[in-house]
Simulated assay, not measured.
Amino acid sequence: MANVMDVHSEITRSRKLERSRSVSKGLGRVESSPYRQVYVPKLSDAEWMHTLGFLPGRVGARARNGGDARNFLDSVLWVAQTRALWSDLPQEFGPPHRMYVRFIRWSVDGTWFFVLSSFSPRDERHVRLFELVEGYLSRKRR
């Protein structure tokens, strides 16, 4: 199985090439994303049960359609590990904008730090998720 970073590098190169071709043809944004082909393992049942203990209160209580917290967490981990754009999120996770807005809420209210504490600091998912959350918060502070 290919390393996620190797796949990321290859996708970045192919994406730049596709963009340069489409822009030269006047097509603008490339709709098909090679990131949709990347496999990122989801949380196992045991990992989910462990992480669930670190989540505060009622998960998804804010929104009427708060949805499945496990699916949401898997979608954020997918974005964090692939370093893809939210718009490249596979359809199986749901609407990218909805996932992004919920990610922002959890970033602002500190929920991600509870989630991060459920992972080992040496776990790649912990590192990538921390980078994603800190990246958002540092841009927000500017």
Rank of each mutant, 00 (worst) to 15 (best):
A69V: 10
L43T: 11
R83H: 12
R15S: 13
V127F: 03
V115C: 06
W106Q: 13
V7D: 06
H50V: 07
S120C: 07
E124K: 13
R83K: 14
L129R: 07
P41F: 00
W48T: 06
K42R: 14
S24R: 11
G26K: 03
F119R: 03
P56G: 06
V7Q: 11
K16T: 01
L17E: 10
D109L: 05
S24I: 02
S14R: 13
N71Y: 00
S118L: 02
R58W: 03
F113N: 11
M49E: 15
R29K: 13
R15N: 06
V79D: 08
S33W: 05
A69M: 14
R58V: 12
G94Y: 08
M5F: 13
G67F: 02
R105A: 12
V76E: 08
A61D: 10
V101D: 12
P56W: 04
P90F: 07
L89H: 09
A2L: 08
P34S: 07
E124L: 13
G53R: 01
K16A: 01
D74Y: 05
V30H: 01
D109Y: 05
R128E: 11
T51Q: 07
Q91T: 11
S117E: 14
V30E: 04
A2N: 10
T82A: 09
T51R: 08
R98I: 11
S118A: 15
R102M: 13
F113E: 14
G53W: 00
E47G: 11
R13I: 10
E124D: 10
A80H: 05
D45S: 15
L89G: 05
A80V: 09
E47C: 06
L73H: 04
R21Y: 01
S14M: 07
G28N: 06
G67D: 10
G53L: 03
T111K: 05
T82N: 09
F72K: 11
T12C: 02
M99Y: 00
W112V: 05
L27A: 12
H126L: 01
T51A: 14
V40R: 04
G94V: 12
L17W: 01
D6S: 12
H50S: 14
T51K: 03
A46D: 14
Q37C: 05
R29F: 05
E131W: 02
F72L: 14
R125T: 08
V127S: 03
W48K: 12
T12N: 01
S107V: 04
R36K: 15
T51S: 11
V108T: 09
W78V: 08
E131T: 00
E92P: 00
R70L: 06
P121H: 06
L17A: 12
F119N: 02
V133K: 02
P56D: 04
R15P: 00
F114G: 05
Y100A: 13
W78S: 07
M99A: 15
R64E: 10
R58I: 13
V101N: 11
S14D: 04
V115Y: 03
M5D: 13
R83I: 02
D45F: 04
R21G: 00
L55D: 02
V115R: 03
A80E: 09
E124R: 13
Q81L: 15
F93S: 09
G94I: 09
R98Y: 09
D88H: 15
